[in-house]
Design a protein around this nucleic acid. Structure first.
Length: 418
RNA sequence: GAGCUCGUAGCUCAGUUGGUUAGAGCGCCAGGUUGUGGCCCUGGAGGCCGUGGGUUCAAAUCCCAUCGGGCUCCCCA
């Protein structure tokens, strides 16, 4: 096929009319379930200051080091947001949302941008929904976040997934653990992957996440963080597990689960789907008790999740779940002649005021073509308007499914369909 | 950043060891029915065979490059 003159950028895809209904259906589910959990929606700009994202997510993370779309204009440094936790926290601090009292329970839906090579379940512009509880360090908040996340998948009809859970500790526990990890890894460091060697000093925990084959033997018998958690973190982690048990939410503890953003503390979790192939993470999240302060606010504990909408929709495809029903239009005005077209144009608003969806042909085509169009548009009814009908004030109402016709006044038609 | 693979009509794809005007199904438009959709029949529009270069009397077909898609590694949603 000859390439069109203009195309969308690599990894940035159009959501076309045949696809948009399922997106809208998914968004409706997210809004409804978030509302049931009493979360409020927040919408932040697509672009943020580079410094916020770098500080918030971490200089050494993959996201910041190689996946950021950034550019300058005048003195301002812009980035297209790669995730929304840091921006939401920025908004929380900037607008003093803590003054609203209680814990802020916020959720969002929107596009994110990461400059990666696209593949299945990975686009450069992709969409996430997510939720954050800012201002509580209670394990109840962690569990409510997880419950909301899972609830949305269940509403959609996706039930086969695995929840992986870990605690990455508070700063104190983490330092002790990192030291233990370093002394364990050090003797063999030269046998490990280049990537792991690079991470050794600054972020040795990410080594646990490595998939490099040469690293595996060392990772397997590495010390686990659970043994280094202090009393507070241990208790928090146990409470989270206890509450999940009480809610009947299944999970597996994965001591090697370390997430890609530096800001996580204590609870970390991921939702994995066997229906996705290589990019199998449906959603992920955790607690980030230090981020608010890092960004310039008062020390404020928080926890949240983010979920990939494309991946959710891929899972739906695999599971034959259809989120949206076939589109229909209530009534299609079929016109014969100019007088009929004028009549139709001026009566469409009346049908719409009566609560019906209503349309007509825009191209002055033959009756047969109009009927065909009405069929293609899944019109429930057609109203046939010609000279006879205009003279008598009665129109032919055709039920397209039953192929039955009645001769009725316009008022009778509205009453019947309304 | 690395690897594999594929680019022929709007879509899904045929195209025989290179050989005349490049095909099918679906979709689109129109007619068969001068006021009736779906089924059927007939016809039509629509392709510089991704792009550029090379080999050859001759290239959709062979070679090189390039761009784009898909998949994979890394990492993440």
């Amino acid at each position: 096929m000859a390439k069109p003159k203009y195309t969308s950028h690599v990894g940035m895809v159009d959501i076309l009319p045949d696809e948009s209904p399922k997106w809208r259906a998914l968004e409706t589910i997210i809004h409804e379930e978030a509302a049931k959990f009493n979360f409020e929606e927040i919408r932040t700009p697509i672009m943020e200051q580079t410094e916020l994202i770098v500080r918030g997510i971490g200089q050494l993370t993959d996201i910041v080091s190689k996946e950021i779309f950034a550019f300058e204009k005048g003195d301002s440094h812009y980035v297209l947001r790669p995730e929304l936790t840091a921006p939401v926290v920025r908004a929380f601090v900037e607008h003093h949302l803590e003054q609203r009292g209680g814990s802020q329970k916020l959720y969002y839906i929107g596009p994110m941008f990461r400059a990666e090579k696209p593949q299945k379940g990975r686009q450069r512009q992709f969409h996430q929904f997510g939720a954050e509880v800012i201002g509580s360090d209670d394990p109840v908040a962690d569990v409510e976040i997880i419950a909301l996340m899972i609830r949305i998948y269940q509403r959609v009809g996706i039930n086969n997934f695995e929840l992986k859970l870990n605690s990455v500790g508070d700063p104190e526990s983490r330092e002790t653990y990192k030291e233990a990890l370093r002394s364990y890894l050090k003797p063999n460091l030269d046998k490990m992957s280049e990537l792991s060697q690079k991470r050794f000093e600054k972020n040795p925990m990410r080594i646990l996440d490595s998939k490099e084959p040469e690293d595996q033997q060392f990772i397997e018998s590495a010390p686990v963080i659970q043994d280094y958690l202090n009393e507070d973190s241990t208790e928090h982690f146990e409470k989270v597990q206890q509450y999940l048990d009480q809610l009947g939410i299944n999970y597996t503890i994965d001591p090697h689960l370390v997430r890609g953003m530096d800001y996580y503390t204590r609870t970390a979790f991921e939702l994995i789907s066997p229906d996705l192939g290589s990019q199998d993470a449906l959603a992920g999240g955790g607690r980030y008790d230090l981020l608010v302060e890092e960004i310039g606010g008062q020390p404020t504990p928080a926890v949240g999740f983010a979920a990939g909408m494309e991946r959710l929709l891929i899972a739906c495809e695999e599971l034959d779940i259809s989120l949206a029903e076939e589109k229909t239009v209530d009534v299609y005005f079929v016109t014969l002649g100019d007088a009929a077209r004028t009549w139709a144009l001026t009566h469409l608003p009346k049908a719409r005021e009566a609560g019906l969806s209503a349309t007509m042909d825009y191209k002055g085509r033959s009756m047969k073509a109009q009927m065909k169009d009405a069929d293609r548009e899944n019109a429930l009814y057609t109203v046939i308007i010609g000279d006879n009908e205009l003279n008598e004030g009665k129109f032919t109402l055709r039920n397209m499914k039953e192929s039955e016709e009645n001769s009725l006044t316009f008022e009778e038609i509205l009453e019947k369909l309304g």
